[in-house]
Design a binder for these strands. Structure first.
Length: 324
DNA sequence: TGAAGGAACCGCCATT
DNA sequence: GCAATGGCGGTTCCTT
């Protein structure tokens, strides 16, 4: 049986601390025998949280250092993820040196990064914290769009349900697709979700960036459904086309065309969620002109197709038309 | 899915 | 001398 330590660190989110036991515990052989022995390891008394609120105190049955006897350590999210004591960081470094596999769920990635285990590696965390992680640990290559990152001996995952995806992935890695599929069915999850966490991100920052181009960006947003060329944008911004091409990326981080496509896809996401319009109609309303071109840009940005996105996110009572 | 045409992008250099 | 801007032409990317 594969031994797994769920690390009960201070401020641990109860749901995610229990995720390894719940999901890995669902992995069984054909005969019904358990494949993982999940142990909760931590200090004598640990505060556990949910949504930032202190909920209850834990008395882990195993000590922190017992995690070193396990083959895998899972670090859950914590409200104190970036303020863990040196004892926890040292334990993780020692575990890594001994070849123990280490995984994090959600903000647990901050603990791994604080221990220096993510230096020069790809990693992810909850989409709301990816910018913070990248800013605090510049040597970590943060990928905000995926549900989890498997770097072999170190794995990181997105928020909450991303931890479930990660655990199912661990089962698939250790015991194959069939065992993982059975475990996934047991916890009522798809064996592999479509798309990454990019599809869960709600964007509000459009008008907040753009510096001197804020008014122009607002105008572009109002006119996404019409063809917009560089010359038009430049005239609107009162600069030459050449200056626009030079300054637009400085202000927004994207070229004008990339920015337009991104905003059109976001508008399409909104319409897919809140209206019953056909994909073709949405393509026209977002300036893509036809469904083929919408699909062409939608999948690379969102990670799934417009139809699949609608199946996942459609508001149930929006069958008669637009709600906004 | 691939090809052709056009738009967008970017490096370089001149001008202000 | 430096920074911002704009024109030109080659390359890349998008649309049809």
């Amino acid at each position: 049986m594969h031994s797994v330590a769920a690390l009960a660190i201070d401020g641990a989110v109860g749901f995610e601390l229990a995720t390894p036991a719940q999901v890995l515990g669902a992995a069984r052989t054909q005969a019904g025998d358990r494949l993982y022995d999940v142990r909760v390891c931590g200090a004598a008394s640990v505060g556990a949280t949910a949504n930032g609120q202190h909920l209850f105190a834990l008395r882990p049955p195993y000590r922190l250092r017992d995690a070193l006897d396990c083959e895998t350590i899972v670090v859950p999210a914590s409200t104190m993820a970036d303020r863990q004591p040196e004892s926890v960081l040292r334990l993780l470094r020692t575990a890594h040196d001994r070849g123990i596999r280490i995984a994090s769920i959600c903000t647990g990635a901050f603990v791994l990064a604080s221990a220096g285990l993510l230096d020069g590696r790809r990693a992810t965390t909850h989409w709301a914290h990816t910018a913070h992680l990248a800013g605090a640990f510049p040597t970590v290559e943060v990928d905000p769009s995926v549900l989890f990152v498997d770097e072999g001996d170190i794995l990181t995952s997105a928020g909450v349900a991303g931890g479930i995806d990660l655990c199912i992935h661990l089962i698939r890695r250790d015991h194959g697709f069939e065992v993982a599929s059975r475990a996934a069915r047991r916890v009522v999850m798809p064996p592999q979700r479509e798309g990454g966490q990019a599809q869960f991100v709600r964007h509000h920052e459009v008008a907040e960036t753009g510096g001197g181009f804020a008014e122009v960006l607002h105008w572009m947003q109002e006119n996404l459904h019409t063809p917009i060329g560089l010359d038009q944008i430049a005239a609107r911004a009162n600069v030459s086309t050449r200056t626009l091409v030079r300054r637009f990326p400085e202000e927004t981080g994207l070229t004008a065309l990339q920015w337009l496509i991104r905003e059109r896809v976001r508008r399409a996401q909104l319409l897919l969620e809140s209206t019953a319009f056909s994909i073709e109609e949405i393509a026209v309303q977002t300036g893509f002109r036809d469904a083929a071109r919408l699909r062409q840009h939608f999948k690379p940005q969102v990670g799934t197709t417009p139809q699949a996105y609608r199946r996942s996110f459609r508001v149930p009572d929006s069958s008669t038309g637009p709600t906004a």
